[in-house]
Structures are given as C-alpha cells and as structure tokens.
C-alpha cells in the first residue's frame, strides 16, 4: 500500500493536544513504527503516551569501559614484564599504585565510547518517518506519520480539528 509522510505541528504549550493527536493516529490504524515525535525540548515517552524507546548508548559505554580496563591492565601488569627493571624489595607489578591508571583508563573508555555510541546511533539509519521543520527548534512539537494515500486527507482534517498545524509536505525536509 502506498503511503505518504505527513507532518503536523503543535505549539509548545499544546502538549495535551499533541498526545490526543497521537491517539487519533492510533485510532486511524497507524502503527507506532509509522509515527515519530520531534520536539525542541525533551518529552518522555510516558508524557507522549508512546512505547518506551531503547538506546544502546549505556551498553556501548560499558563496553568501552571494559576495553579501557583491559588496556589499563595490560599497561600495568604486562609492560613491566617486557623490560624488567627489578628494584630491591619492590614488587614488579604493585597493585595499589596500579589502581590510578586502571581508574583513569576505565573512565576514559566509558566516556569516549558513550560519545561514540551517541554518534553511531545518530548516523545509523532509523525506521521511523523522516523529516524536519525549522519550527521544531522554536519549541514546536512535530508529529511525523506515514498514512495510506487513500486516508491521507481525512486524517489531516481530523488532526486539524484538534488544533494541529498541517505542514506542507514540500517543507518537510532533512535538516
């Protein structure tokens, strides 16, 4: 079935109308994966009545921390064995002084990989409807949805009754 991508806008203080519009779209038979909400300030899924979203950023972050920990352990405990410099009465690989390097590199791994996680997810293709309107950064709430061409106009009229501003499809572009 051929589908159109449409976008509607609500002002920042019309959050209740926006959630009603999402409900209307559900009643029209438009599935969650065909709806995407964009906004200039963060609104939680609970506020919007949307299913909980998922992100891999924490997992990527923790993986990076593990990589950092492994590198730190190698530097602390392997490198002294590569070129042994034994000092009388001193252990070659003392644990207490190794904690500092271990901590710093683990944190470095965590923080850098968290950023990488954000970047990777930002540039990865997403399944929801695409599009943007500069009014979003002016505090508007935008609802993007895919709907069958046959019901397109009817849906838009219904949303307009809820106070939505219908965006001309030609104005819906990638940023």
């Amino acid at each position: 079935m051929e589908k159109n991508v449409r976008m509607i806008l609500f002002k920042e203080d019309q959050i209740n109308m926006a959630t009603e519009a999402i409900e209307t779209l559900h009643h029209q038979g438009i599935s969650e994966k065909d709806i995407s909400v964009i906004s200039g300030v963060p609104f939680s899924e609970k506020i919007l009545g949307r299913p909980a979203a998922w992100t891999n950023v924490p997992i990527i972050g923790v993986s990076g921390a593990l990589v950092g920990l492994i590198i730190a352990s190698l530097l602390n405990f392997l490198t002294p064995h590569l070129y042994k410099m034994t000092v009388g009465g001193m252990p070659l690989t003392p644990i207490p002084t190794s904690i500092v390097v271990t901590f710093e590199l683990t944190m470095l791994g965590l923080l850098i990989s968290t950023l990488l996680g954000v970047i990777i997810e930002m540039i990865s293709p997403s399944s929801g409807p695409k599009g943007y309107h500069p009014k979003i950064s002016d505090g508007y709430i935008g609802i993007l949805f895919r709907c069958p061409v046959s019901t397109d106009e009817e849906t838009c009229l219904e949303l307009q009754d809820l106070g939505a501003e219908i965006v001309d499809p030609e104005e819906v572009k990638q940023p």
Partner: peptide, 17 residues
C-alpha cells in the same frame, strides 16, 4: 549538530549520555 532533529530516540540517547 550531527543531523539533530529532536526525535524521541535522539532525546533519549542524549539524556542517557
């Protein structure tokens, strides 16, 4: 801005990060 649009997923990952 890495193509920032302000989608729910973008806000979520920003919040987590």
């Amino acid at each position: 801005s890495l193509g920032w649009r302000g989608t729910e997923a973008e806000w979520l990952r920003l919040r987590k990060a």
